[in-house]
Design a protein around this nucleic acid. Structure first.
Lengths: 251, 251
DNA sequence: CGTCCAGTTGAGGCAGATCAAGCGCGGTGG
DNA sequence: CCACCGCGCTTGATCTGCCTCAACTGGACG
């Protein structure tokens, strides 16, 4: 490496996996220093991506995974009548691009919600490294498994939950993910618009807005434009599990 | 191989990957004879599973993937209020159990819809074999990628489609999967109840029943109990307006 | 200080849920 | 052989949560 050169600019330093604060959430988790360096050498750092710009697009060849380094992305598919369905919002440390594993073409599109950056890791490199580093293979499996489980949670949300439950679930999910990133689980900025929240949760923008207002009246949250303050997380939690209490006692 | 022994009973023959008619849909796809044998040695064949019995259960340790050999399974998660959300129906040749990749515990439950059987492949074996057989690693990635894409299609369905579109999509999807299995794409038995169809599609049993009736009046299908006859696939397609570009799993 | 646009609020409508009754087939037993 | 039951499914009537349409608000920005 370039340890011999003491005069390295901050940018170069910041972009190595070794010094990345996200390594415990990302692919490097569980690797030792030597292994990390091997991985590091295969990772391509991409230039900052402006809001609305694509990281990858539906129908385009895809031979890499991407780790969100900063900012936030959304992935979405186009429905038959042309309008989009958002599949997920992706925060730093999260990997996206699994949709290209099947046939090396992307089946969804990823665009930046705010100015963002990402690391690109070619699939070929991942595969060959996995053969050398059992820890990496293990971590890959964990990440893929989590991806599948997250999607399944969304199916439950869309298939069974009321609008109110969806919003409460959404806030609690974001809260936990910000906490995992050493950020406040109580106060954060939404990187996405109301429109995008509604789309993601299978609702309309009006319904989302009304429930934001309702939650504020109930002192559960404060929302000011995109700044959210969760004031009563326990109550939000009980909202998600509320309905079984009401339904199961009449006998 | 055991070609030297001419006296082998049919059961033994039938259960090897070499002779399994599903191998082109399943894990063995793309492996040569020698490689196939290696895989074959690691696969455990499970006894037949009766309708309603579990292949694996939510919260239980999971250290294997399972390939459906015959019959059909459903996987489901319990929502916070206790009722189930069906995540998928699984036909012969399909792999299930990816929900345990994240932490070696299952996050959903798999039960047989009819008398079924499955092959168990321990994850450890898959991983070590993947290091020896690039073809297997490649096929694993393909299957995982397809799994992710299928889940994403379901998110679009639940987030955006009308009840009618959901049912049409459901029929077309089953039709294609039966065709892939060299069965009639026009006439087949549903392995699941109306209730399970409704649950899977985020609808009620009454709505499903009404749309079945409507489709019959429109001469799109014939349904008699669980026997379905698709009479006008093109019209069903136009109901969904779905471009089936992505499902060509023969890639 | 007007325009724009994201978001909010209100009124009314509708797709699908809920509630309730009926149907038909397979199984049981008489 | 029919009478009866149970259960999966169908059908009808009514209800409702969320959508749709439409008007309004307030901060950002030229």
């Amino acid at each position: 490496m370039n340890n011999h050169s003491k005069v390295i600019d901050i940018k170069t330093l910041k972009v190595s996996c070794t010094d990345c604060s996200l390594s415990e959430l990302c692919l490097p988790r569980g690797l030792n220093e030597g292994e990390l360096e091997k991985l590091d050498n295969r990772v391509l750092r991409k230039k900052p991506i402006q809001p609305g710009d694509q990281l990858f697009g539906n129908g385009l060849p895809g031979k890499s995974l991407y780790a969100v380094r900063s900012g936030a992305f959304k992935t979405y598919e186009l429905s038959t009548n042309g309008d989009e369905q958002i599949l997920g919002f992706h925060l730093p440390g999260e990997l996206i691009g699994f949709d290209a594993l099947a046939d090396n073409y992307h089946h969804c599109t990823a665009t930046a919600l705010v100015t963002s950056s990402a690391c690109e890791i070619p699939l070929e490199q991942i595969q060959s490294l996995c053969n050398q580093l059992p820890g990496l293979q293990h971590q890959m499996m964990r990440i893929i498994g989590k991806e599948v489980n997250v999607d399944h949670e969304m199916l439950v949300l869309l298939g069974k939950k009321s609008a109110e439950e969806r919003l409460a679930t959404f806030f609690l999910n974001l809260s936990r993910r910000y906490q995992d990133r050493k950020l406040s689980p109580y106060e954060f900025n939404l990187p996405m618009s109301r429109m995008e929240i509604a789309n993601y949760l299978g609702l309309t923008i009006e319904t989302v807005s009304r429930i934001f207002t309702r939650f504020q009246k109930q002192k559960l949250i404060d929302v000011n434009r995109r700044l959210v303050h969760l004031k009563n997380i326990d109550e939000l939690r009980s909202l998600v599990m509320e309905d079984e209490i009401n339904r199961s006692d009449v006998s």
